[in-house]
């Protein structure tokens, strides 16, 4: 069986996998990182989004062997060891950007990539287009968009903390 060595959230792992093992299966079933979800399993919904070398990727449509040697970040790798949330997680909490929460890990990972690629700021339209690969079946998009706009301000140093959501 092929062997794959990859760094996940700063920790190096080596695992034996089948050729057909998906990256999301390796993360969830071998490494027990179950924050990354499988929603549709057809590359549509984005619940499985992780970062490979800093870019958002659907881990249900990536073979584990294709991530050999890569730096992978999952939702578990965002908060600081003391539990301080990443600004994007904090913004999702403050803006109530989740209802059932199933899509949230993928939304957060896609949103961070989107914000990092747009240091000059993002319009609402850009945020909505940037989320084309993520589906929320609760249709809670409005608050997700607001949360991402708020997190972008903090991530780019234009604000020191997440603004309180308007009541």
């Amino acid at each position: 069986m092929p062997q794959v060595t990859l760094t996940v959230n700063g920790q190096t792992h080596t695992a034996e996998v089948e050729g057909r093992t998906l990256l999301v299966e390796l993360l969830r079933e071998k490494l027990r990182l179950t924050g990354t979800h499988v929603g549709c399993d057809t590359s549509q919904c984005g619940a499985c989004v992780v970062h490979i070398n800093g870019e958002s990727v659907k881990s249900c449509t990536t073979l584990a062997v294709m991530a050999d040697g890569a730096q992978v970040t999952t939702i578990e790798g965002l908060a600081k060891p003391d539990g301080t949330l990443h600004p994007m997680q904090e913004a999702f909490r403050e803006y109530h950007a989740l209802q059932c929460g199933f899509c949230t890990p993928g939304m957060v990972m896609s949103a961070i990539d989107l914000v990092q690629k747009n240091p000059g700021g993002l319009t609402e339209q850009q945020i909505r287009e940037g989320l084309e690969g993520n589906l929320c079946r609760c249709t809670g998009y409005h608050n997700i968009v607001k949360a991402i706009a708020a997190a972008a301000e903090v991530m780019h140093g234009r604000r020191s903390e997440i603004a309180r959501a308007a009541e």
Binding site: S43, G46, L114, G133
Partner: peptide, 9 residues
Amino acid sequence: IGDVQVRNR
């Protein structure tokens, strides 16, 4: 083409 994640791969 497709969405961001499709374009990344």
